[in-house]
Write a protein that binds this DNA or RNA. Sequence first.
DNA 1: CGACGGGACGC
DNA 2: CGACGGGACGC
Length: 529
Amino acid sequence: MAYNHNVPENCRLFILVGKGIKEDAFREAFGKYGKIEDVWVVKDRRSNEDKGVVYITFSRASEAALAMQEMNGRVVPGHPKPIKVLIANSKRDGSVRDPHEDEKILRLFLIIPKSMSEDELRREFEQYGDIDYATVLRDKNTGESKGFGYVKFFRPYHAALALENCDRSFKPKFAEPKMPRGERDNDYEMDYQYSRDTRPPGAYPRGPERGPDRHERGTKRCFSEYSGRDDYHDDGPPRSRFSHGPLGQHRSPDDLEQRNDEIADHKLVGEGPMEMIQNYVNNGCQRLHVTAPLGLTQQYLTRLFNLIPGLEYCDLNEATGIAYVRYATPQCAAYAKDKLDGFEYPLGSRLIVRFADAPNVPDLKTASAMNFENYGIPGSSFERDESDTIRKAALILEKAGINPDRVLASDNSIERVTYCNIMLPLPKPLSPEDSSLAQRLFIVCQPAAVPERILRDAFCRFGDLIDVYLLSGRNYGYAKYASKECAMKAISVLHGQSIAGQRLKVLEAEPPKEDNRREGRDRHDSHSE
DNA sequence: CGACGGGACGC
DNA sequence: CGACGGGACGC
């Protein structure tokens, strides 16, 4: 435990690259995919010359996977050679090439309820991306679930999103590769298989509502554009030379309401107005940069952008409120930008949607700042007719399966949540799992258990929550806090209230029953690793 | 085309 | 009444 400080798994990129490129160029090229923790341009000890290898550590695996997916095979500006981007092995594993190393970044090991079937497991995780397989391990004799399973994705980015965003009770981990000796069939060249536009063999479009253009792209583009691609050369669906008007144009309040209407009237939902989308100009940009209000969750934002056909991913950094969204075609992206830029979501806040890397929008900061002027200032003309706007927006959110009551309160300190009978403080970040325990609470749900994600959402709102869980199959459990005040606040607010239809008791927990009284220096820490 | 530095448990 | 959680894949 001494070294290897808490760098999460699969957050580091291993990049093969031309020599003479400086650290700043990598920060510039990779920084937009996430928070860069470290850039190391490897140099020869003696000659001090570049070795053509760079390591970049991101704060999260999804950021690294996204950067790999987007940057592999591209060039760093000003340097002609396309780079090769892989997820780095952990330092401990060294440079060994495991023949099944892809499992380390594609497959999750998950703790699941004993009652959960493979279908349910798959359904739970396919919200994060296309799934290769979902398995539940069972006792050979009784057939009873062992309470854990594996889910394998096609893309590292999707696996990482699932890991980071699934209910914490799954205790997700990247699975250790373990393969029967028999080889698997689709062992095609791994090197570039996760790159930008590829869709793996057997992948299917997520969700039945996807537009037909998805299928056309589908399987056959896997390796078409890797070699030496250095710019936008879209070979996607039929492009149109016509547009429904200029893009990125200043918008009037009437336009916003008009768009809300369109969405509410289903013009935008479901099978999608494909011919309309095709009429959007192809500017070669499939990625959008979204500025969302803080507090908005990954899941909710994904549902919103998924209303528009062709969504490939929607990655929100919940800490910054910045999301990157990608669609199957530039037209879909343009359509999404047109419809959702300035959209009131959640109620009371507006999204800002820009092209992430369009040549004609070189400076994101400038674009965002301008946009704030247009939409973000209270007292602007957007406030007129407020009740009507809110009503329409609520309609749209309901269609996306989003709870319209989850409104950011005007004073930004409490909100209405549908699962609870009272207003609650806004969610606060969890304390790290290894935080020292300050107070434990005993929780009883009567008459029946409440899903853990709801408990987590409720109990985190007082701050410094480490963990909350119910004993498996029971209606009681514990919440652990890193601060006594936060725990006591949770008791004072939540005790006696109703959550997900259950009556809640929240008490200070008694010390664990098995008297571990010898808390001195009972065991010597085996310094592992 | 292919693999590991610097600084470092702490206010 | 309601008291203490689960963890690796048929070679």
